[in-house]
Write a protein that binds this DNA or RNA. Structure first.
Length: 327
DNA sequence: GGAATAACCTGGATGC
DNA sequence: TGCATCCAGGTTATTC
């Protein structure tokens, strides 16, 4: 499922194909893919037709395509996309037959690459596209990866910077953790604290940092938080280098190819398998409406908190599988 | 105001 | 074989 590395792979794939391209036509096949758009499908289509795309930017799991303003000034709006759990943005030849679960198609003309179809397909409809206004960033830095201007869409403005963003502040992250009276896993998934980390990379980062997912974030020492930041970055960079995590066809790059990071997972989806570090079986517990995978030996709760075993004992078998078992 | 929880959604896997 | 149920999880609205 698309987290930061997967979205960055998509952004990097889109950037050369859409920058400078003119939108010739927009087709909305399912307006449920416009849940974040203020307005209807007809409005979405009419706003975009004839506009020129200025680039491709990303913050956390959101990506956006700033649009050239009619008067040639600073961009004031953008096409914003979120892939949700199963969304895909694909580059297809013009006139290509409809993709399965295709919801929206942008037909564009690039000055070098010619005509291309940008297809938004989404099986579960958690993702969406929208046209949104751009607002200045709070710190005056570029809005995110790939962004040139110090602006970002309104609906992305409440999202914190991600750990791979050059303007990410480890100190601000440390202060936020110290304020939160909540489990570190829950805080890592809070996009207003740090963006881009989802369930897979939260589990992997906590495993690498030897931190129990239910450790209260405000009890973590400065040294431990520094280690966590390092491991989060390392996990995200490694996943990015391997093209992201694909368990099945639910995440692919713009050319429809899967990533390989599923082969490098140490904790997520490895219930019952030996911890690569100590050999103890990885356990899975239900936590914060999600599944949490960790090593009970390497990742222990601080002493005062150690007590009852995992809330919901793991049922090996049906529920032990990840969405689709990694190969 | 902060934290926790439920709902949204689809399709594959599982159980009966 | 067919139907019902569970499960995956990012975001947001609602509740506590």
């Amino acid at each position: 499922m698309p987290e930061l590395p997967e979205v960055e792979v998509v952004r990097a794939g889109l950037e050369p194909a859409v920058t400078g391209a003119k939108i010739l036509a927009v087709s909305v096949f399912d307006d449920r893919a416009l849940t974040r758009h203020r307005g209807d499908a007809g409005g979405f289509e009419s706003i975009l037709a004839g506009r020129v795309i200025r680039g491709a930017a990303r913050r956390g799991k959101f990506l956006w395509l700033p649009l050239e303003p009619p008067a040639g000034k600073e961009p004031v709006d953008a096409v914003v996309g979120h892939l949700g759990m199963s969304g895909q943005l694909l580059l297809r030849p013009p006139g290509a037959p409809a993709q399965r679960h295709e919801r929206i198609r942008l037909d564009i003309a690039h000055p070098i690459h010619g005509e291309i179809a940008v297809v938004f397909a989404d099986q579960r409809l958690f993702g969406s596209l929208a046209v949104d206004d751009l607002v200045p960033t709070a710190d005056g830095e570029p809005g995110g990866s790939g962004a040139v201007e110090a602006s970002l869409p309104v609906q992305v403005s409440h999202i914190a910077r991600d750990p791979l963003d050059p303007a990410f502040s480890a100190d601000a992250f440390r202060r936020a953790l110290a304020r939160k009276d909540s489990a570190i896993k829950r805080v890592l998934l809070d996009q207003t604290v740090v963006s881009g980390v989802g369930n897979i990379y939260a589990d992997e980062s906590l495993w690498a940092s030897r931190i129990h997912p239910e450790t209260p974030s405000k009890t973590l020492s400065t040294r431990t938080v520094t280690r966590l930041v390092t491991e989060v970055r390392h996990v995200l960079e490694k996943a990015l280098a391997e093209g992201g995590t694909s368990f099945d066809a639910q995440y692919v790059n713009v050319n429809g190819q899967a990533g390989y990071f599923a082969h490098s997972l140490n904790a997520y989806g490895r219930t019952g398998q030996a911890c690569p570090r100590c050999g103890r079986p990885i356990v899975r517990v239900s936590f914060a409406n999600r599944s949490s995978h960790f090593c009970p030996r390497c990742q222990r709760l601080p002493r005062p908190l150690q007590a009852p075993p995992a809330r919901r004992p793991e049922r090996l078998g049906a529920s032990a599988r990840p969405p689709s078992a990694p190969a």
